[in-house]
């Protein structure tokens, strides 16, 4: 007991002991950070550089620009081609695909998903933030899509979208509406993949926004009520500004995750018809792995990186603007 009280009162520190402690803690900090720095350098940044290198080559899995197979003693025959891949992409020279459309579809994909996730999520969060019966039940049901693995969701929706025996078209038929050509019509195909991803993303938005709402102190509402603010004014002047940090954060995460989505597009429409539901991510896979054009595929990877850099810049602006709220 005596030792405990003894240590509770720190001995007067000299400059030397403080310095030693400082150095010791700094050593510890570097030790903590080393594994992750090494891991990201070797497994993210090094491959990134390799990817950029490949984007300047015409490497492919087929002749005449073969990457070579060391295992079979087949030498590589691919060449450095400078900016040719990027030129081909930006000049839109490939007769089989319209790159401009893929770019637009990527934006469309992110925009609709982000907007629908956020608006539906916020709506549900506001409803669930009230004192209502069965709140727990609703919340539990709401979690279901979140707990569903992405690929299972994709298979499930592909099943529902089937032209002949899919539930959605059967239902439309029952209602004497024209069935929708989910895989043949570009807009319907895009809608199909967006619907699936919106379905998957609603719970995350709802639950995090609900958390954001719940962390707004009740006193603020009470004060606003005393000031005579009505429901809408309270929403506008208390809820929205205080929810904004949460909203900006979850929207950013949502955009990143949405941008990354591959399985849904690949498994539901395969990017079709004629690449009209492809995004850069799903199309890059098609180019790099199915068509085995590693150089061109890597160039798409670099373009994806550029898009992300632009996004990070916009986002950091937003963050800065956000901080001014406080």
């Amino acid at each position: 007991m005596a030792t405990v009280t003894g240590t509770m009162m720190p001995p007067p520190m000299t400059r030397v002991t403080r310095m030693r402690r400082y150095l010791r803690s700094k050593w510890f900090a570097y030790a903590c950070i080393t594994p992750i720095v090494v891991a990201t350098a070797v497994l993210i940044y090094y491959p990134l550089i390799v990817g950029i290198y490949y984007s300047f080559t015409n490497a492919s899995g087929t002749n005449p620009n073969n990457v070579g197979i060391p295992f079979l003693n087949i030498p590589s025959t691919f060449k450095f081609v400078g900016l040719k891949n990027f030129f081909d992409i930006f000049a839109n020279t490939d007769p089989t695909v319209d790159v401009r459309l893929i770019f637009l579809q990527t934006l469309e994909w992110i925009f609709f998903n982000a907007v629908l996730h956020f608006s539906i999520g916020l709506g549900l969060a506001l409803l669930l933030n009230r004192k209502i019966r069965f709140r727990g039940v609703y919340r539990a049901l709401l979690i279901v899509p979140w707990a569903t693995p992405q690929f299972v969701a994709a298979f499930g929706w592909r099943f529902l979208f089937n032209g002949d025996y899919g539930f959605i078209n059967l239902l439309l038929e029952r209602l004497h509406l024209a069935p929708i050509d989910w895989t043949g019509q570009p807009s319907a195909a895009m809608a199909a993949v967006i619907i699936c991803n919106v379905w998957l993303g609603i719970p995350f938005m709802t639950i995090t926004l609900l958390g954001g709402l719940q962390s707004i102190p009740n006193e603020l509402y009470e004060v606003a009520e005393l000031d005579g603010a009505n429901g809408w004014q309270r929403f506008q002047n208390v809820t929205l500004p205080l929810l904004r940090p949460t909203a900006v954060l979850v929207t950013m995460l949502d955009v990143i995750w949405t941008f990354n989505v591959f399985a849904i597009i690949f498994l539901i429409t395969g990017g079709g018809p004629y690449h009209r539901s492809d995004t850069f991510v799903s199309y890059a896979f098609q180019v790099a792995i199915i068509n085995q054009k590693y150089g061109l595929g890597a160039a798409y990877g670099v373009i994806i990186l550029l898009i992300l850099v632009v996004f990070v810049m916009i986002y950091s602006r937003l963050l800065r603007a956000n901080e001014q709220v406080y």
Partner: peptide, 30 residues
Amino acid sequence: ATVTGFDPNLQKFLTGQEDAQTAANNIADG
């Protein structure tokens, strides 16, 4: 395979986005 644009252009033709000759020319390019 989709790399030639055979299927994509065929689909464009069948859904009325391209006439047969245009689609065929695009496939030939691929």
